[in-house]
Amino acid sequence: MDLTISIIVGFMIFGALYAIHARDLLSSVIACGLVGYSLVICFLLLKAPDLAIVQIVVDTITLIIMVAVVLDSSREESYLKLDTQGYISAVTAIFLGLLLLYFYTVSIQSLDVLGKSSLRMAKHYIEGAAQKTGSANLVTGVVFDFRGYDTMGEAVVLVTAVLGVLTILRLRGKK
């Protein structure tokens, strides 16, 4: 499982690199969609069918919105040559990345090996959860019963985002 996931994530890295370096903005957006669709395969391999259903539809809608924005424009990234500031920011990004990678590899030693997970809370969530909540789907039980406040916050954030979009995109105020 470790090797399979690694190969798929490798493809995702290639897609992400192409999305960042493409000249045409439309192909960049479509490469971003490729990364999202690969994530669906990873979710199915990791035994998370709920997430796979959500992600495959959400990725399609994100692609539609991004394409709708890009098609209005000239679609060309004005490809400037790297000047001094470009070099500085590239070197800064690579240095920051290496530093973060080092700390990540140090801190990852405290995690379990992939597939041998032994999270302390997992036992309490799984044992008797079906009897406590009455729901056969454990994810629904966790989302709406044990972690209900998370879901409430999520609903409020969603409404706030919709209000923000309506405020930004309004051209004419009410007379």
Partner: peptide
């Protein structure tokens, strides 16, 4: 483990 899946489920829609 269902807990990380529940967290990611809300995060995707957000």
């Amino acid at each position: 483990d269902p807990l990380p899946q529940a967290l990611v489920l809300t995060a995707i829609v957000i």
